[in-house]
């Protein structure tokens, strides 16, 4: 593939918390308009790696990032880059649904508002909720509290909230881990649809999920001597049927981790 086909690329990316390393020298190319999943055992640095892509690690005082993250060729950690401007291009959905204690409408409108959007807000809210496959369920109660929704609905609201600022990339950190299988399938279906227009990176502990929805899979691991290093990266089909590295095979077949 050509470089233009990658929306995000990491070059020798390492992350430290104080002096403790959590992600080690990761080189990863994230394809445009595809779903890339990051899998690996607990504590191997998946969330840390994901948070490099929208500079959320900046909010943790002890975190330090080395190496490069290129976003369409632009170094996200370059000197002139304002992290708040990155974050509405690269949206994020969290492990636990975290809608604001405001109305459903205000949740979706929050991002456009703080970014100075002046157009037709009703239209943005409707479009985002439709895209997040939540519109039909909430269209009659937009003024109701977002906290009155079920967990699965709340997570879709969080996706709608992220979509409302028209990001190009959506990062998802175990977005289904607090949801039941039915809600999980709904979110997976949604991700498939969204991947036509957005590039998605998802961290997941669920092998089937990674195999089902993602086009590419990155396997991170930790050993006694090294943490958060990339073992294998490639097409999900290949990783889950015929991995090259035996550690990958051990992990996906459940013999380890």
């Amino acid at each position: 593939m050509l470089d233009q086909d990658f929306i995000l690329q990491t070059r020798g990316l390492s992350v430290y918390y104080d002096s403790k390393i959590a992600v080690t020298d990761v080189n990863l190319n994230v394809a445009r308009n595809r779903i890339t999943s990051i899998i690996g055992p607990s504590g191997c640095g998946k969330s840390t790696l994901l948070r490099c892509f929208n500079r959320m690690n900046d909010l943790i005082p002890s975190a330090r990032v080395e190496g490069q993250v290129l976003f369409d060729g632009l170094d996200l950690y370059g000197p002139d880059v304002d992290p708040t401007e990155i974050r509405y291009e690269i949206g994020m959905v969290f492990q636990r649904p975290n809608p604001f204690p405001k109305s459903i409408y205000d949740n979706v409108a929050f991002g456009p508002r703080i970014n100075g959007f002046k157009g037709d807000m009703d239209e943005v809210v409707e479009r985002s909720l439709v895209r997040a496959a939540l519109w039909d369920e909430v269209k009659d109660r937009l003024k109701a509290s977002a906290l009155s929704l079920s967990g699965g609905q709340q997570q879709r609201l969080c996706i709608a909230r992220a979509l409302a600022v028209e990001p190009r990339v959506i990062l998802m950190d175990e977005p289904c881990s607090a949801l039941d299988p039915f809600a999980t399938l709904a979110i997976e279906e949604l991700m498939r649809e969204l991947s036509e227009d957005y590039s998605i990176i998802i961290v997941t502990h669920n092998m089937q999920q990674a195999a089902r929805v993602s086009h590419y899979t990155a396997f991170l691991m930790l050993e006694e001597t090294r943490v958060g290093f990339l073992v294998e990266f490639g097409e999900s089909r290949k990783i889950f049927t015929n991995p090259e590295d035996e550690r990958t095979e051990a992990y996906i077949t459940g013999r380890f981790g």
């Binding site: 708040t84 974050r87 949206g91 636990r96 975290n98």
Partner: peptide
């Protein structure tokens, strides 16, 4: 809750 702060930072809030 910190999750509300993270949620709004992630939308590009200053």
């Amino acid at each position: 809750p910190p999750s509300f702060r993270e949620g709004s930072y992630a939308l590009g809030a200053t």
